[in-house]
Design a protein around this nucleic acid. Sequence first.
DNA 1: CTGCTTGCAAAAAGTTTGCAAGGCA
DNA 2: TGCCTTGCAAACTTTTTGCAAGCAG
Lengths: 143, 143
Amino acid sequence: MSHEHVDLRSRLRDSGLRLTPQRELILAAVDRLGHATPDEVLAEVRQHSSAVNASTVYRTLEVLEELGLVRHAHLSDRAPTYHSVTDHEHFHLVCRNCGRIVSVGPDMLQPVTDRLRDEQAFVVDVGHLTVFGTCVECPGEQA
Amino acid sequence: MSHEHVDLRSRLRDSGLRLTPQRELILAAVDRLGHATPDEVLAEVRQHSSAVNASTVYRTLEVLEELGLVRHAHLSDRAPTYHSVTDHEHFHLVCRNCGRIVSVGPDMLQPVTDRLRDEQAFVVDVGHLTVFGTCVECPGEQA
DNA sequence: CTGCTTGCAAAAAGTTTGCAAGGCA
DNA sequence: TGCCTTGCAAACTTTTTGCAAGCAG
């Protein structure tokens, strides 16, 4: 009944695809989680409703990404993390020591994206970008 | 007999590790290949000499990275790629359409790394950075 | 009804690990 | 000789795929 619901249905239909409970559940889970791996999405869905198969999660995340409703980034050397595309485009900072993840707006990158476009004829996909590094003074939880 | 050889041996010894033919072969393969996945490194080593085990490749790349002789970046959503650290630090541009990979010096990022340090107290690991996007006019091999 | 979707199970891809034999220093 | 390294095989994690049954439109 929400606007998201209607939006998802129409986006799917425009591509000749169908609205299923699984697809609604998975999109809702991604929304709630913020940044989550397919595995975490699966666990979240199962917690809020009936069981869904892992392969359905993979296939659905792929569909949702093609529709532009979610995006993924690589916030670790392991599994990718998906997030919903409700907010503005942003990229991520990841601290290798404390694991802190910060979202940063595209403005910060402007000088770089401009130069890459002019000098390398290259258009940056800002939303997929993950910048690894370390906090100057970090909580030092991990590593 | 090369300087690399001596350098590798001494670096290993400084950490209480040993120089083995496998470690020389794997480092040499990474040097020749430029950017290569563990799998590609394995194939290259086998082509130039006797068989080496896959697990040895993984273990050796890990050791070489700890010693600072190689680095890895994620140039695809699949396996990581390793490159030797002979040249200056650089980051990578990857075109999703044609697969082109371009190495870019750290200067390009200066404005961003400066701002992230000042505004987010975050020090960027430039060498690990991979920037995905598309060439303005690309050969259009893949996708 | 039509054919897109799902669940299931198996396969694939990439990586890790335990352990005994081997070899560098 | 000591113990770091390797090979081998098995286990593991994450993702993909084929196929028949299920369900949205």
